[in-house]
Structures are given as C-alpha cells and as structure tokens.
C-alpha cells in the first residue's frame, strides 16, 4: 500500500526535522549523539522513500484500514481517555466501575454479564494489588 508508505515517509521526515531542531538547542557536546541518530534515521528514511518510489502499487483496496470499525474504535478510545482523565479524581474503583460498565454495555455485552464482570474484576484487582501486593492505586474523592 503505497499511500501508507508515503504517510510513514512524511511522518519520518517531520520527526527527523523536529528532533534535529530540538537537538540543536542542546549544548554542543550533548548534541553530538542525537545528531548521529538523526543522521542514521535520515539515511534510513531516504532508503525507505526510494523503496516506496520503486514499489509497484498492489491492488486498490482500503489496505491496512480494511474493515475498520470507526464508531466502535472512537467509542473505545474516548472511553479509555475519559477513564484515565477521571481515575485520579474519582478514585480507581469508582472510575473503573463506571468505565467498565459503560464500555461493556456500549460494546453490546449483556447488562448482567457486564455487571458481574465489573464487580469480579474490581474484587480481583483489590485482592491482587491492595491485599496481596500492597500496591497503592489512584485515590480520588470517592474510592
């Protein structure tokens, strides 16, 4: 899929320049090694660009995003982001309970199975992390 190789090429060029720009702001002695890596990535990117240019287009399908479930993906990534965002505010167990219930039901899991899974998971995490390993979990104003 040439299109995605080109996207990768653009990303690599931007990344190289950004890294080089940031490295330039470092003291000279500290910047030598980052410059060396930039040169390595630059050469590899150039080779990849030539490879992409030489490659023949294979098929015109949607390629790596074939069968991509856009709505489902967006729902999952948004709920994950919201979960991380509130976990330190609500506390681990409250945030996890809400996150799991919403995501499981949103992904069409039966409500009762979702509830049992959520409660079972929270109990499991409590015993493994809090009771057995004594690892502190994010605390908020609830639990």
């Amino acid at each position: 899929m040439k299109k995605y190789s080109n996207i990768l090429n653009i990303f690599l060029i931007v990344f190289c320049f950004l890294y080089f720009y940031l490295a330039k702001q470092l003291p000279h002695k500290v910047a030598v090694y980052p410059f060396l890596i930039t040169a390595i990535l630059g050469v590899l990117t150039l080779v990849h660009i030539i490879q992409t240019f030489m490659k023949k287009e294979e098929g015109k399908g949607e390629g790596i995003f074939e069968n991509f479930q856009g709505k489902q993906f967006l729902f999952v990534i948004t709920s994950c982001f919201a979960y991380v965002f509130v976990v330190n505010v609500l506390g681990f167990f409250t945030a996890t309970f809400i996150y799991l219930m919403i995501t499981l039901v949103g992904l069409r899991v039966n409500k009762y199975i979702a509830l049992i899974t959520t409660i079972g998971f929270c109990i499991g995490v409590y015993f493994i992390f809090c009771s057995f390993l004594k690892v502190p979990l994010p605390k908020g104003f609830i639990i």
């Binding site: 999952v76 709920s79 994950c80 979960y83 991380v84 976990v87 330190n88 681990f92 996890t96 996150y99 799991l100 995501t103 499981l104 992904l107 069409r108 899991v109 199975i113 899974t117 998971f121 995490v125 992390f129 390993l133 690892v135 502190p136 979990l137 994010p138």
Partner: peptide
C-alpha cells in the same frame, strides 16, 4: 468486547503501580 475494557483497565493499574504516578 469483554476483553477490550478489562485489558485497558489492567494497563492503567499496571502502569500506575510502579511509581505511583499518573
């Protein structure tokens, strides 16, 4: 659909557990 949220929740607790930092 059951695994997705469970794994992510484990990712969250796991990455928090080492340094206790969000």
């Amino acid at each position: 659909n059951v695994l997705i949220p469970l794994i992510f929740s484990l990712c969250t607790v796991g990455s928090y557990a080492i340094n206790n930092q969000l």
